[in-house]
């Protein structure tokens, strides 16, 4: 609780200069990547979309302490919502994002009403089961989703009627980075708000928060819906950028990867989500390019080394180094 008490004022903290740093770093990094790797933009775009997705997972796992293994449910619903909107209603990409967010939020709300009453192992299992039900439903409802073939040829119109998605993927990359920055700012506001502090309190001790009058269940459902909306945006982005939606969006491995990336980077800090995603996907990409058969050795060894050397995730590396040097 001392951490909460020593904060000067939440509003000013959220608006102060310090909170601009992460956004600036992300924007600068994206700009540098754009010019340094002009031929890998498709891969970079995938990383950026994954960052949005992992950020949404950080809100529930890192801040509210809700561990699920079914975050792909919201991602997939967002992807299908955006794909269907683009095919049947309007090809406008921003409208697609809105519907993706709504799709993710809706399924998060429906499943969250049950999920947020569960804990631990039970919570993990129910969240997996929800995703499996959605995947089966998507594969059987051929008239709507195209079944196992997926939604083919999702195409979107130029952004604001102006910036058309080009073949190299420059517009797609910039578009995704803009969404990432917007989501990052939004997440900062959420975690800095009184609501975000209540979430940290719930993570620390639900019973104490209940005792001081916080409606714990309602707060958890709220953050789950918010995170679901952002995951839906990530899914919608993926659908628009790749032009495809398949039932793989509900794969268990996607939910598991998201959890691994977040813990790798360091749960409970927004930077952690970004760094974990970046490192995991780049190492994966490079290792798979060097040795397409044995790259899993590298990933497995990396996870073990990180968890044994830096239990708080990669984000704690600078702190660790500083402490080590001070001691000597």
């Amino acid at each position: 609780m001392s951490e909460l008490a020593t904060r000067p004022s939440v509003r000013t903290a959220a608006l102060s200069l310090g909170s601009i740093w992460p956004v600036a770093v992300v924007a600068l990094g994206a700009g540098a990547a754009f010019f340094l790797f002009p031929y890998d933009l498709a891969f970079l775009t995938r990383i950026v979309i994954m960052m949005v997705f992992v950020l949404s997972f950080d809100l529930i796992l890192g801040y509210a302490g809700i561990a699920t293994l079914g975050h792909a449910a919201m991602y997939g619903c967002g992807a299908y919502a955006a794909g269907l909107v683009a095919l049947h209603i309007s090809p406008d990409p921003l409208l697609g994002l809105v519907f993706g967010a709504l799709g993710g939020a809706l399924i998060a709300w429906l499943s969250g009403l049950v999920l947020m009453r569960a804990h631990g192992m039970t919570l993990l299992m129910i969240s997996i089961a929800v995703t499996m039900v959605l995947q089966e439903a998507a594969s059987k409802a051929r008239w709507l989703t195209g079944g196992a073939d997926g939604l083919p040829g999702v195409s979107v119109s130029p952004i604001f009627g102006w910036f058309e998605f080009d073949f190299v993927g420059q517009v797609a990359f910039i578009y995704s980075v803009c969404v990432l920055v917007a989501v990052l700012v939004f997440c900062q506001l959420v975690v800095g708000s009184p609501f975000g502090l209540a979430l940290k309190g719930i993570k620390g001790s639900p019973s104490r928060m209940r005792a001081i009058g916080t409606p714990v269940y309602r707060r958890k459902v709220t953050i789950y819906v918010l995170a679901g909306a952002i995951a839906g945006i990530a899914g919608a982005l993926a659908a628009q950028v790749t032009g495809l939606v398949g039932i793989e969006v509900f794969n268990f491995s996607l939910s598991a990867d998201v959890m691994v990336m977040l813990i790798l980077g360091g749960a409970g800090r927004l930077y952690g989500a970004i760094i974990g995603t970046l490192i995991f996907m780049v190492v994966h990409h490079v290792a798979a390019a060097i040795d397409p058969f044995n790259w899993l050795f590298v990933i497995g060894a990396m996870l073990l080394v990180v968890v044994f050397a830096l239990p708080q995730g990669l984000i704690s590396l600078p702190d660790r180094l500083i402490r080590t040097f001070r001691r000597t």
Binding site: V260, L264, N294, W295, F297, I299, G300, A301, L303, F308
Partner: peptide, 20 residues
Amino acid sequence: LGQVLATVGIVFLMIATVNL
């Protein structure tokens, strides 16, 4: 969370070994 990460790492190593 550390347990999840560590055991996922172990299972990746097992899969990679059999795959190799």
